[in-house]
Each structure stands twice: as C-alpha cells, then as structure tokens.
Write a protein that binds this DNA or RNA. Structure first.
Lengths: 352, 352
DNA sequence: AACTAATCTGTAATCGATTACGTTAATATA
DNA sequence: TATATTAACGTAATCGATTACAGATTAGTT
C-alpha cells in the first residue's frame, strides 16, 4: 500500500448506481441535475470522505490554482512580507503560492521561471535580480499566455503588469525632509543603478536638491550595496572630501546603519551634526537605541495589490491581456536619526 | 487562444510516425528503445520545443514534486530562513515549495493542512501554532501516507519525524553563561508553556540554576510573548520584587529588547548591573548600539536537514515509515548585553 | 392523442503521460 | 528447417475529473 486509495467519483457512482458524469455534475452544482440527486451525491460524498483530485481537475482544466513567486531571497524582511501579502490575498480564492529564489543571479531566475512554467502555474510574481539585464525569459511566459506581474523591481516590458513603489517620489521625499531639517550638503548612498529602483531614488534625490536650489556635489554620491560595511566605507570616503556632508540619504537601511556606526565612531553627533535617512523601514531601524528614519515600502500592501492585479487578469478572460501599472506611495517614518524637530519636543529625554 | 497549444508526445509521435508510447519511453531513457530512435526523438523533441506536462505525469504517478510548508507567519526571520533552507535543499531534486501561514491559529493550520493534502502534495513540513493542542489533523496526513515532518515546534506524535533545536540545552547554556559572568539572581522571561520549546528552555534554565546551587525564585519567571512591550512590562514587574534580578534570560529576542529598553530607562547599567540574554539571534540583535547576546537556532540548517529527512523518507520506498528525530545544537552568540569579560578586553571603547 | 419542450441522466471522448501486455521481425539455437 | 529467443515497437488501458452530445423520461400544449 503505497498510498491509501482515495475515493473517486467512480466509487460514488457505483455506490449510488448512477454515472460518474452525474456525480461530477452534482458536485459542481450543475443545475441540470435534480435537487434530489444533488443532495444525495453530496451526502454520500461526505460519508465516503470523498476529496476531489485536483490534479485530474487541473489536467482537464489547464488551471492548477498555483502561482509562483520569484524573489532574490525569501528571508529578507521586504520580500517575505510581500509574499505574505500575496499569500493572504490569494489564499481565500483557493490559490497556493510556490516560492523560488534567484539568489540575485539571472541564471537562476531563468531556471526557476522555466521550472514554474513547466509546472503549469497559473501566474507568476517576480522581482528581478540585480544581474537581470533583459526580459527575454519573461517574454517566454507571455508567449505561453501565463500572466506575469513584476513587483518592486521591474524591467519595462510590454504586456507585463507591475506594482512598484514610487521610488522617485521616495527619493525626493527623503531628501526634502533632510532639507527641511536644515541640511544643505546632503550625500547619497546609492544602490546598483542597474536596478530601476535605485536609479529612481537617485533621480528623486537630485530633483529635490534642484528644487531647493542646493548644489549637487557628485563626490557626495557613493555606490553601496546592502551590506553594513559598505555604509561604513562610504562615510570614510565622504569624510575625505573637501566638503563634508551634513546629511546622508541612503538607498538602503543596512548601508545607513553602517554609516551611523562609522559616524558614531568618529564622535559625530546624530542628528545634530549629521542627519541620516535609510530606506526600507527594516524592522531593526525602529529598535535601535538611535532609531533610524526610514522610508517604508508597504511590502505587504504591495503583495496584496499584486495579487489583486493577478486576480483581475485571470477573471477577465480576455484574449488581450491588459497591462496594469500600479505605483504605491512611500511613507517616511521620521525617527531620531534625522528628527531634529522631534528631538526638541522630546527634550526631556536623557539625550544631549 | 486561451493558452498557447503545448506540444505533446502525440505531436512528436505523429511527426515521426511512431507511437506515443515509443516517444514516452524514448524520452525516459527506456533501454528497450533502440539508440537510433531514442536520439531521433530527443532531437525532434528539442526542435519542437517539447515540454513535459507535469500535471499529466503527476496524475499518473501520484507524485507532484511539490511539498508544503506550514508556518505561523512567513515574514519572521526564523521561519523564512528555515524555508530558505528547505527550498535550497529540495530545489536541486526537482521539488517546489508551497508555503502556507497558520497565523498562530490551529483552525487555519487544519484548513491549510487539508488544502495541501488535497493538492496532492508529496510531503509536508510544519511548525505548529501556539494554539495547537493535539495532532488529530496531522494523523490524517499520516493515514494518507503523506510524509510529515515537524521542525522547531512539534507535538510528539508517533510516526512523525522532527528536526528541532535542543531547547533544554539552549536554556541551560544561556543560564550557565550568565552564571559564569557572575550573575546569581537570574530571571527568566518565558514564552507560552503550551509550546514544548518554551517548556524546554525553562527547564534548561532551572537545571542550570540547580547545578550551580542557585536558588530559584518563582517570582523571577515571567510569562511573555514575542512583543517588545511584554519585555518592558516584565522588567516593571521584576523590579517590584523584593529581590531584584541581576540577569535576565529571555526566551525571545523581542522581549529581551523590551527588557533592555526598560532597564535603560531606569538607568540600570547593562551588563554591569544586569546581564541580558535573548533567544533566536534575530538580525537586529547584533546591529544594536548595545548588541544583544542571543541563542542561535541555525534556522537555515534546520530547514536543510528537515529537507534531507524528507528525501530519505521518500527515497526508501518503505511501507513502514521510519521515525527520525534530529536535534540540533544551539549556538550562543555572546555580545555586549551580557559579555562582561568581552567588555573588559574591549575596554578601549567609549563605554565605561 | 400526438407532438413539443423541458428536465434529467448516461455514453464516451478528452486532458497528456505512463505502462502492462501483445505483436512483429530478426536473430539464435537445436 | 523448425523453434526459441530477443529486440523494438504498437495497442490500449489507466490516472480522475470534465463535458459535448445524445438519449430517456416526464410535463406541457393544442
């Protein structure tokens, strides 16, 4: 006995001496079946502990009720929160979520995508890896008519819907906040410009500087990754500049943390001498002794909306797939690493 | 055109004017098929861009190459890391991971479990919710001969393999460490005793106290949850005691963090006056200005090993399923919140 | 009564791959 | 030469559910 024999509609049909077709129709609430039969079948099915074989159904219908998610890593607060949002929105509709990691390698991304397509998935959610340069692999999904939705990190592709953050606005808001706190020489720790999101944050930063007539010092833009050390090194380099910054807007929280650590080591007071703003609102930012101001990307909402876009796309059984672009607004959580005004009102604190 | 018509073995068989059976066998490297035919089929399949329909195969074989994971929440560092471990171990074997959340509600847990069984999953990994009292639902999986593996949080059930942390040892180690740092009145912030893990941590704590002949003050054991506030409140209550603790061993990092915040608010010096040890080695613990000593549960390894246990169980195609119990050793990361000795060697720091 | 319409149910094909069993033709053996 | 053996492939059933089409029964209409 490899598997306990499951009861099928044939078992029910034999027991009731009716055809399997009738059983199937009865279970699917087909109105052509008399109420009497329908109820009898339902009752018998329950008695026999019948469970529909979703594989058979999937084979017949071509729909599996599974969707795939491809992210660089799943144990990153941002991505796991997006996945949670997707899962919670889709679960009540009977969908299950299959997760895959690309490890930031386009090679893996392609492999996972093909594997998912091969698994007869109903849709794919994806955040491209840092090393993804084009979307040839994505076009394969479209060619097979499988809905694909980008979230957060996308590469503009015709026919692909996306749910992303307004990173330009986020960069602008963060910079504007620093300006309003009185900072005039704002440095920027950028991420890999290959990714749209970092490019947009950078451009938002530039736009804010220009709007307020601040000069933009190219020396004050440092490329970092999501490691703490890169933030530390960035401060080292920044403080070698002729003109020292009086604020740092980091495109990532880990680099921001590294920067703060290095600033403290140099006994530079935060936020009095230098204000720092991070990005992503990672859980740790608010737990710090010096809580870090950070830009929230509402990841769970992002997942939820991506799921809704997917549901619309499969509901409207259209030949033409509509391209939907959702742009979410970021939200700045001002904390003590940049909140000079907050600090004043909370002057009863033991700080300074 | 709803779906682009996939090419099937029938398309290949027609093109080559051979039977579909031969095509199937050729593709499966069946030695009964001549090398010539095998190569011809392989070549043609590639030319026609044939992709095996895994649904059909799954229906026939009864195996889907999908496994399910049920966790309370996926966007918790610990759980998402375990999932990552499972995913990385299973992926090379062709398995995909389907994730489900129980939200700490046994009701959801049951629902998700049934849904997974119904989806014809090949195996299930599960960490029980806080509200799970028995394993009747789990027995249903066993009855269907679906391998089920507990990780971290389990409820002893015959026939179910598990991969867990040695929580007793962890509790013992944490407490012993505090004793070795010179602490004599060690409080414990416990988790929900309904879960074995918290019970074991507590018992390890007691055992260490006894070993070193320290008296155990029941007032010093406070029930907390994984919220920061509960850690704060715990300190409030502890400092209302006749006898104030000189150390806190928390069964969770968030409660430890809350405790530290409250201690600081009371100007109690850490680790000089009170040492604090947390549990889980959450990412934030090492980023704090006062890094928190914490017990690492090696979650990714836990996932990896759980996956290996699963693979063994499906490989050995035995009628009798072997019950395997793996217990992992915890690892204590000593940081400044309890590292008095460390502090001394690093006395050049700006801290007292 | 005769016929149409409506209601309910059965037959069989289908989704795509696998496989037990059978067949053919070629080769080996007596 | 007659028979046994083997290699190579085909036929058809199977996994379990769905559904187009057809058939049977009953009710309704003139």
């Amino acid at each position: 006995m490899n598997r306990k024999e499951k009861v099928t509609i044939y078992d029910i049909s034999k027991k009731l001496d009716i055809s399997a077709a009738t059983v199937s129709r009865a279970l699917n609430q087909n109105p052509k079946i008399s109420k009497k039969t329908r109820e009898l079948v339902a009752k018998t099915a329950k008695e026999m502990n019948y469970k529909q074989n979703r594989l058979a159904q999937a084979l017949k219908s071509g729909r599996t009720n599974n969707v795939g998610v491809i992210v660089p890593y799943i144990n990153r607060s941002f991505f796991s929160s997006v996945i949670r949002g997707i899962e919670e929105e889709l679960n009540p509709h009977g969908y299950h979520v299959i997760i895959c990691q690309s490890h930031e390698e386009v090679k893996n991304e392609i492999k996972q995508l093909n594997a998912l397509l091969n698994t007869q998935i109903d849709g794919i959610f994806m955040s491209v890896s840092k090393t993804t340069q084009n979307t040839d692999h994505v076009k394969k999904a479209l060619a097979e008519n499988t809905p694909l939705i980008f979230f957060d990190r996308k590469i503009e592709t015709p026919g692909v819907s996306s749910v992303v953050l307004d990173d330009f606005k986020a960069g602008f808001m963060a910079t504007e906040h620093l300006i309003q706190e009185g900072c005039k020489k704002i440095a920027h720790l950028s991420g890999d410009i290959n990714l749209e999101i970092y490019k947009n944050r950078y451009e938002g930063y530039i736009a804010a500087l220009e709007k307020y007539g601040l000069n933009h010092n190219p020396e004050h833009v440092i490329l970092t990754n999501s490691k703490i050390e890169s933030g530390q090194q960035a401060v080292v380099r920044l403080w070698e500049c002729e003109e020292k910054p009086d604020a740092i807007f980091s495109a990532g929280d880990y680099a921001a943390l590294g920067a703060i650590q290095e600033l403290k080591r140099r006994n530079i007071k935060i936020p009095e001498e230098v204000c720092v703003v991070g990005f992503s609102n990672e859980p740790f930012t608010k737990y710090m002794e010096l809580p870090i101001t950070s830009m929230d990307q509402t990841p769970q909402l992002m997942g939820k909306i991506a799921a809704q876009v997917f549901l619309e796309q499969v509901k409207e059984n259209l030949a033409v797939s509509i391209e939907k672009k959702v742009v979410l607004s970021p939200e700045l959580f001002v904390r003590e690493s940049s909140g000079r005004s907050i600090l004043k009102t909370a002057a009863n604190k033991a700080l300074l």
